[in-house]
């Protein structure tokens, strides 16, 4: 295949080059649209001192939560971490650092990071703990705080379909943070449910163009549901 073919054949190959103390940006919201198998590969590799940028940290025993079991995570940058007992234990014991970041600011930090914008002003968090120590500037009479963007050594992403060139389509709300994460990694690794040949996806319907993607692998997924809520038929 040509130089645009991003497909790799093993998870080991997919995460090749991952080292201690690296920063990883992960897509997903709760357990929805998370790169399950790439996370498991990070666990298998046993790297430590990781900084992980992700809206949440999975749950005990699944998703990013598994990386806490062997204390592989040094720092989490997240908006909400309330679903995880091990997380709370390590946080209270001082073994884990957390940088609570408003969800929209987190999404924008990834987006800006991937777009080559080093920082941006936002009203979110002004006058709160989040704004402490940050540069404040008024625009049209309203104060804004300066937030720095984020890039990662790796980005790990879950999409639905891809072609071999790494053009991606997400499914339903499994999209969430994945498109921004995909832009913000020095090495962006994507796992998908189906890989098709270039030309088989409608160019108008691509969510993430292949230019952002370095490695692509087809996986199988458990897709665990965090809050199964149903109504009577």
């Amino acid at each position: 295949m040509s130089g645009f073919d991003k497909v790799v054949n093993s998870y080991e190959e997919a995460m090749e080059g991952l080292q201690d103390d690296m920063t990883i940006i992960a897509g997903g919201f709760g357990l929805c649209g998370i790169p399950e198998n790439l996370i498991n590969e990070i666990k298998r590799r046993g790297v430590h001192g990781l900084t992980i940028v992700s809206n949440n940290c999975g749950v005990d025993g699944f998703g990013l939560g598994v990386l806490l079991e062997d204390k592989q995570v040094k720092k989490m940058v997240s908006s909400y971490v309330g679903e995880n007992k091990l997380f709370e234990q390590q946080l209270l014991a001082g073994e884990l650092e957390v940088e609570l970041t408003p969800q929209g600011t987190l999404a924008e930090k990834m987006r800006a990071g991937g777009a080559g914008i080093p920082a941006f002003y936002t009203a979110t968090g002004y006058g709160t703990e989040v704004g402490k120590g940050k540069d404040v500037k008024e625009f049209n009479g309203r104060p804004y705080i300066l937030e720095e963007s984020i890039t990662g050594d790796f980005a790990i992403v879950k999409a639905w379909k891809a072609d071999r060139y790494g053009n991606l389509v997400y499914r339903h709300t499994a999209q969430n943070f994945n498109p921004m994460a995909a832009t913000a990694g020095k090495i962006t690794v994507v796992e998908v449910e189906e890989i098709v040949e270039p030309g088989e996806l409608d160019p108008c319907q691509i969510h993430t163009p292949g230019i952002y993607v370095d490695r692509l692998i087809k996986g199988t997924f458990e897709k665990r549901i965090e809050q199964r809520t149903v109504r009577e038929a």
């Binding site: 709760g30 929805c32 897709k223 549901i225 965090e226 809520t229 149903v230 109504r231 009577e232 038929a233």
Partner: peptide
Amino acid sequence: PTEDEVDADLINAGKQT
């Protein structure tokens, strides 16, 4: 959703299907 309609890829901000 009804039981038949449950889809792990479709949740709200409270992580509910």
